[in-house]
């Protein structure tokens, strides 16, 4: 009898706090609903309200993590990283810590501070708590390389996860499709316009070659007819100008073409790729 009574007493004591807890969870659900409805600004307000009343810090990890996600969705990356860091600090399990820290890496990737993202990947790599997470770390490392426009290293890193990894194949393909900027420049030194033609800009290359031929002829002709002053002026102001222009153009065309190839792959990643993205 006595035991039963004391059990009842305990129940009596616990029940209100159980309900208080549920009021926190109601607020959490409400804030999360706003997040799911993409009302990120209001969602942050409600999560902040939750954190304000949550004196025991039960929701510190989860609320801060979603606040970070809200800021990330609004492309306010500095704030996002701030709140992901709070989440990482308040994490209760290695799993949670890993989630918050990879979110920081992903935000750095989107912010294009890829050096920082790579550095954070290295930090996770050396953490003994995450030895079984190598693949996931490499996955984000690969994305960081992609956003740094370094497809060679990206393909290398994705290859470590799986030699036939979808993103490894994409990165490899992108890297192969690119033209060599140095080569384009060097052949333009030898034959003005050749670099442009190598990059696929035939008309521009031919016109460059034409100008150089014409200006070269004028210059030579002037010297041949003993008009040295004309020769120097035409050589300096016309020939040299188009000669330099051809080399500059070759470089620009090569860079532009490479950018186009990169952007094509990036567009695919953003719009069609089904896997998890930063």
């Amino acid at each position: 009898m006595k035991i039963k009574l004391s059990a009842i007493l305990i129940y009596l004591l616990i029940s209100p706090s159980a309900w208080a807890q549920s009021s926190l969870s109601i607020q959490f659900d409400y804030a999360e609903k706003l997040f799911n409805e993409k009302q990120y600004f209001d969602s942050i307000t409600e999560f902040k309200r939750l954190l304000f009343i949550d004196s025991d810090g039960q929701y510190s990890y989860r609320a801060n993590l979603i606040i970070g996600k809200c800021y990330k969705e609004g492309a306010k990356f500095d704030d996002a990283i701030k709140y992901f860091s709070f989440a990482a600090k308040n994490s209760n399990a290695p799993e949670e810590n890993f989630e918050a820290r990879t979110q920081i890496i992903r935000t750095n990737i989107l912010r294009r501070t890829t050096d920082r993202a790579l550095q954070l990947c290295d930090e996770l790599d050396t953490d003994p708590a995450f030895v079984d997470k190598k693949d996931e770390i490499n996955y984000w490392r690969g994305w960081a390389y992609i956003f740094a426009d370094d497809w060679k290293n990206a393909s290398l890193v994705f290859g470590r996860i799986d030699p036939n990894h979808e993103l490894k194949i994409l990165a490899e393909k992108t890297e192969k499709a690119k033209v060599s900027v140095t080569f384009a420049k060097v052949i333009s030194y030898i034959l003005p316009g050749a670099g442009a033609i190598y990059c696929g800009n035939f008309l521009s290359g031919l016109m460059s070659a034409g100008w150089n031929l014409l200006a070269g002829y004028w210059t030579m002709n002037s010297f041949a007819e003993n008009r040295a002053f004309d020769g120097i002026v035409v050589g300096e102001l016309v020939w040299l100008r188009f000669y330099r222009g051809a080399i500059q153009n070759a470089e620009e065309f090569a860079v532009e073409k490479n950018l186009k190839i990169s952007n094509q792959s990036l567009r695919y990643l953003q719009n069609e790729y089904k896997g998890i993205k930063p």
């Binding site: 993409k38 990120y40 600004f41 969705e73 609004g74 956003f147 950018l259 952007n263």
Partner: peptide, 17 residues
């Protein structure tokens, strides 16, 4: 945060010259 903001999807593409 001076004004209420909305979601702003970040483009993956690199800006063209």
């Amino acid at each position: 945060e001076f004004v209420k903001w909305e979601a702003a999807p970040a483009s993956y593409e690199i800006n063209n010259a």
